[in-house]
Amino acid sequence: MDEQQARDDIKYIREMLDRTRRSTADSGTLFIFWGFWIILALIGNYALVYTHLFRWIWVDWTFFSFSGWVVTIWHSVRRGRKERIMTFAQEAAAYISFACGIAFALAAFALPLLGAYGYDVISIVIALVSGVLLFGLGGLFKAKFMLAAGLAWWLGAVGLVLIPGDWRGLGIVPLIIIGYLVPGFIFRAKYRNGK
């Protein structure tokens, strides 16, 4: 072994590490899916409000949340089967995503039903948890655009407080675009380029 061979070996190790990093980039599919799914749920919500069918609002949210979970679990299991490599960052990301998923369910359903806060506060709590999700994943994947999206969610949570309760649902739409759809499409583009 001489100096040049040692350099070649170190370069080779780096290449293998890079390969692992590229092959495990997130596809962004679930961000895009949830972004559009929540917007559809909000459209349903406001359609019901507009037509004075207030008592059906819970059906709208239950349908979109439950079906969203089913799609998420199906997609995750399918991807897990196809995945040829699993990094520690991906494992941690799965735990963070699952933890935030539980927090979303508690914040949107269980806690308001138990009387912890009113329904007009849900979007603020959702924005807070979304900030944790995006910022946490941004740190794991070393993605500045996700860190920025996390900060946007937290700023948005504060901004939502200033919006009257009935309109907070609409106030969350730009946050979904900035905080879910944009990161989702950026991930998707990177994933396709990396393949």
Binding site: M16, T20, Q90
Partner: peptide, 18 residues
């Protein structure tokens, strides 16, 4: 073997085909 070890150091699991 160096390649295998280098891949596995950043992956918790990798399959044979990868």
């Amino acid at each position: 073997r160096l390649a295998v070890m280098s891949i596995l150091v950043s992956a918790s699991v990798a399959d044979f085909n990868e």
